[in-house]
Design a binder for these strands. Structure first.
Lengths: 337, 337
DNA sequence: TTGTAGGCGTTATCAG
DNA sequence: CTGATAACGCCTACAA
């Protein structure tokens, strides 16, 4: 049988509440009492019972995380966010309960009304997301990674994708490039209302127009023929494209680089390439790519903080955009022509 | 404030215990009382408080799942197992707590001694796995997906990788192939003691020898040059290899097929190819591949059942091997030479 | 600085 | 078939 606080109290020769306070640090404890208690705890291998603690303290130290894994979704990136959330949560003594896709909304409801969790982290939010609606309705402490259409009363964090797009375009425009392309996610991703690719694309187009550039877009799925077709479109019949921004999964980016090579185009001599909002490591690509990294750890740990702030009552819901960072790796150069 | 069982009891005009029993179904309830209770529950939107339930009922209905995400690990497959576990657990009214890598052993200890979870699912077990040792020591209800060196007292489930290898070899040998190759996982995976690739490889070699075949092995990482080198080795200088079994991630398999094409080798005319123990869909490959599927849902739902059986006290720990299945897709043919 | 005692919301054991 | 009433293990005013 596991040791209880009563056992510890008896072993240390103090009252239960003294043990409780000693452990929580919520009131000063005499030096020698504290030591006796610590000794007893160590000896008995005491760990507080989570259920009892939740019941009495009205806090479970568990966060729910919901991450819909859609068919066209890029698993490693999503996994990275889930894991980053779990790790970030642990830094605040929180554990993470993983909700299943099927149960996206139902599960949220269930775990919050049954008070299994203190709060919720919503990953990969859509413009119009039923989970977001539900979270607002339930009034449960929550943080979203991603920005829905209506952010009223919600805590949201995300990379500033619009700023990232602007940064990429400016880099190319400043280098004198006049024809630039965006190799984006599969079309279905935009259609579904996954908001970050849209924010990126729209800002990309807008900024390119501001800077007077010709813009080309392509949205292949991950298959080789699709990537090949997209690259053909982007490059144009005369191969007049000189700036390429890739906002898509790593396999597609690698294939795109293969194709450039096949076409006899050198990076960065003929085409400058930027990998944007990427969760993976582009330094081992050939050639290594300039990148505007999307760091799951950043977004997720901030999300966890925002959620916990609401749980503990300090901190209002707010939208936080993480400013993008540009990492040079030599895959861009001034336009030759 | 959320409604409690007391509220329901008052609203229905019955005692608390009657409500409890009505909800748990653990003793017969009069028809009209039951209806009054159900009405009250619906009206108040009552959901039992998980903490209280855990404290009184000594069961949390949460399983911990530990899945170490190693650098050379194939994310989508691992994600599939985690999700399959979560989904399977829900079928038994269980939720799933996701442990982080850093905390693999420590976290297991923590969540079980604090009784946050009723049991544990251990994924991707190694031959010698500290998590497995800990599970045994703690005596917590658990199920492993994968077979460690010492299975004493442990519930384990896994695809029968040895049988899968035998099946693949037999398929080729029966087709008259005399020189067969295995394109395996990266070498580091075998060195680490990840047990299923080893079980597969060893059975592959053993069976091939029994059948008097010449065997070639290669263990590339996922980079194109590595795959290219491995394929060159396997094919041999005279391209005398006619049977290829691939037990590796999908990107590598696709690249291997690309290379066969480049070499002017047709599947299945020149080389018969089998994708073994694959978690992904090989029907959209070109050409579609014969496959011995590894179905995460099968292993995980069985693991969940084994864990729950231990929690509820019926069912002893045992090792279960799932027999492999061969799916034809036209990528194998009798040997031409 | 320490101790006492009343919950927290359920489950389950006794009685009726 | 239904009702009281102990636990369950911990937290936290309230006292001392």
């Amino acid at each position: 049988m596991a040791a209880t606080i009563t056992d510890v109290a008896r072993a240390a020769g103090v009252s239960i509440s003294t043990v409780s306070y000693a452990l929580s640090g919520k009131r000063p404890i005499g030096e020698k009492t504290r030591q006796r208690i610590e000794a007893a705890v160590a000896e008995l291998g005491y760990t507080p019972n989570a259920g009892a603690r939740a019941l009495a303290g009205r806090r479970t130290y568990i966060l729910a995380v919901t991450e819909p894994l859609r068919p066209d979704t890029y698993t490693p990136a999503h996994m990275a966010f889930v894991l980053a959330t779990a790790t970030a949560a642990r830094a605040y003594d929180y554990d993470v309960l993983l909700l299943t896709q099927e149960e996206a909304a139902g599960g949220l409801h269930r775990v919050t009304t049954s008070r299994i969790v203190d709060g919720v982290i919503v990953l990969d939010v859509l413009d119009h997301d039923e989970r977001v609606e539900l979270v607002r309705q339930l009034g449960v402490p929550a943080a979203l990674v991603g920005i829905p259409e209506d952010t009223e009363g919600l805590a949201c964090v995300d990379l500033d994708f619009a700023a990232a797009a602007t940064l990429a375009v400016d880099r190319l425009a400043d280098g004198g490039h006049r024809v630039v392309g965006l190799l984006g996610h599969p079309a279905s991703v935009y259609e579904r209302g996954s908001n970050f690719p849209i924010r990126f694309r729209d800002a990309f187009v807008a900024r390119a127009q501001e800077r007077g550039l010709e813009v080309r877009l392509a949205t292949p799925d991950r298959t080789i023929p699709a990537v090949r077709a997209s690259m053909a479109e982007l490059l144009g019949s005369g191969h007049d494209l000189t700036g390429l921004v890739m906002h898509c999964e790593d396999a597609v980016q690698m294939r795109a680089l293969d194709i450039l090579r096949e076409e006899g185009l050198d990076v960065p001599r003929d085409v400058s390439v930027i990998s944007a909002a990427s969760t993976f490591d582009t330094s081992s690509f050939s050639p290594p790519l300039d990148v505007i990294p999307l760091v799951a750890e950043e977004s997720c740990s901030r999300a966890v903080e925002l959620a916990i702030a609401q749980i503990t009552g300090d901190g209002e819901p707010r939208v936080e955009l993480i400013p993008p960072r540009y990492v040079e790796r030599g895959s861009t150069a001034p336009c030759a022509t």
